[in-house]
Design a protein around this nucleic acid. Sequence first.
DNA 1: TCTTCAATAATCGCATACAATACTGTTCTT
DNA 2: AAGAACAGTATTGTATGCGATTATTGAAGA
Lengths: 255, 255
Amino acid sequence: MAARPLTSPAPDGSGPARRKAEPRAAGSPRAQAVYNALRRAIIEQALKPGMKLPEDSIGEQLGVSRTLVREAFGRLAVEGLVELKPNRGANVAYPTLEEARDVFEVRRGLERLVAENLAGRLTAAQSAELEAHVRLEEKAHEQDGPESIRLSGEFHIKLAEMTGNALLLRYVQEASSRCSLILAIYGRPHSSECAVSEHRQLIEALRAGDAARAAALMDHHLQSVVTRALLAPRGERDIRDVLAPYALSEGLTPS
Amino acid sequence: MAARPLTSPAPDGSGPARRKAEPRAAGSPRAQAVYNALRRAIIEQALKPGMKLPEDSIGEQLGVSRTLVREAFGRLAVEGLVELKPNRGANVAYPTLEEARDVFEVRRGLERLVAENLAGRLTAAQSAELEAHVRLEEKAHEQDGPESIRLSGEFHIKLAEMTGNALLLRYVQEASSRCSLILAIYGRPHSSECAVSEHRQLIEALRAGDAARAAALMDHHLQSVVTRALLAPRGERDIRDVLAPYALSEGLTPS
DNA sequence: TCTTCAATAATCGCATACAATACTGTTCTT
DNA sequence: AAGAACAGTATTGTATGCGATTATTGAAGA
């Protein structure tokens, strides 16, 4: 991310749905590039949850001024990927367990909507695309790399795209990226979140046009993601929480 | 909005739910104030859909520099209240009919989630608060002022607050404000969107703990808002569209 | 009279400069 | 030696300036 200040191969736009990719909240290309860079860095955990984000050094790395960095921070903050505290600057967001539950609950509601919307409306091409994707997932699942996690996330994004509902897509993307953060904090080491078989079943229900079943499957699927991956609250956010046990074992008393 | 540059009586925070009102995407108080001012101006239609938003004059009016105005634009753009076109500046958003449908669809999904979440979990105090609110709505309904519209919007916000799910609340708020825009463009003159009786029924179902019925009611309620208010696409955005009929009646031929 | 083009004016994109605030290490007091 | 007050440093908040891009207007040519 150092020697390549500002390039991004048009990650948006080319959706297979009906819309013309109108860049609503785009800003200038450079601002967008900064935003993309930071967003990816956070999602890929190059920037770890809670990490400080100094405007100065980041701008320097990316070859832009603080102005653009701040702009990106603003957008990322709205999306819940960074926390912005007045006069204290920006940190990569560190969702609490409570927020994590909130995100998952909303995501369930959103994706249920996706399922209902798509049931019985999949074109042959879309159907094929989804199956191809699932096959990719299966391949990646065997090697159990980080690929697996990325792919199962993209499956859900693909579904949201196919609804042709731009807002729904945006919300699902947002929920999805926040889930990345959450799993980075609270998730088990390498549990590959989504069971591929559940994706298969879902496609089947969608193709059969069984909206109720598709919604129920999606619901159950995401529910099981929570219980499967989100059980061990390992990390602690606040310095105080981290140090509390050390203090205790050394006989120090927190104020 | 001219002689009062930057004051706002803390519109957020004091939710009756469980959270501590942590200001995640706050920014400095002044930036927040600019954001609030613009947001309110748009929702109350002091700034009409499609209207140009020059950084310079707005900053002047609000007593801040373009920097803060731009920051506010960024946030409002993410929320879909302004459109930000590179090198062309900002306009109040002018959702297309297609986008309007998208927003309503997502909103239905979100509020169904609210209903399910709340069913059987309302405290006595919350229940009373809702009923008091409905009574207010009834009072306002008789005079049929703009109060009526605001109140029926707030009913839905109140419900979302009561879930205690901060993200859900944010999304519902966002959807709700965009609905204001949409109704300003495509809505009938003074149809007071929500039928108060439907709000009553909904409260009843929530109190009874009938999640399915509550969800169905909410679904139907919002669906009927669409058909009730969103039938006549009156307004046209582009100057050309506005003038087309005039041209025609004068025998002029648009290119 | 309509089109094309150039000059001007207005506006935006972005960097930078300055002011305000928070942090850290030190010294002074008790 | 512990705590408080202070100063220096680092970082953020905001305004402003300059170059770049776009809209507008008026004039020349068809």
